[in-house]
């Protein structure tokens, strides 16, 4: 059986996962490498279509620049900082910068 060309290498998956800020384990990398290549191979079916002069449809409605009046409205009444997992007083606690 001819080994088909890999659409995405393990190194690429690691670098993409880092871009997406998802730490992945060695086991996940092995699993994803196989699965993502299968999926991308299936996606390559769209290469058959000639789309040279076709405009993209980013969404299906004709709405353009929907704006509302710049008016002050009441904000949420609750102290929403309290839904953060780590807080100090009224503040959300963030990790240190690198």
């Amino acid at each position: 059986m001819v080994e088909r060309k890999k659409a995405i290498s393990k190194e690429q998956i690691e670098s993409i996962a880092w871009l997406a800020r998802i730490e992945i384990s060695k086991k996940e990398l092995e699993l994803f490498s196989r699965q993502l290549n299968d999926i991308l191979f299936y996606f390559s079916k769209i290469d058959e279509v000639n789309t040279k002069s076709i405009p993209p449809s980013y969404h299906v409605l004709d709405l353009v620049n929907v704006l509302r009046k710049d008016e002050v409205k009441p904000s949420l009444s609750e102290d929403i900082s309290q839904i953060a997992p780590q807080t100090k007083g009224k503040f959300v606690k963030a990790p240190r910068m690198a």
Partner: peptide, 23 residues
């Protein structure tokens, strides 16, 4: 640090299918 926390939150917070789709 910030990026490590962010990427670990997402490693343990998301399931396999969500991670596959984001990647």
């Amino acid at each position: 640090d910030w990026s490590t926390v962010y990427s670990k939150d997402r490693r343990f917070g998301f399931g396999f299918e969500v991670k596959r789709r984001i990647i």
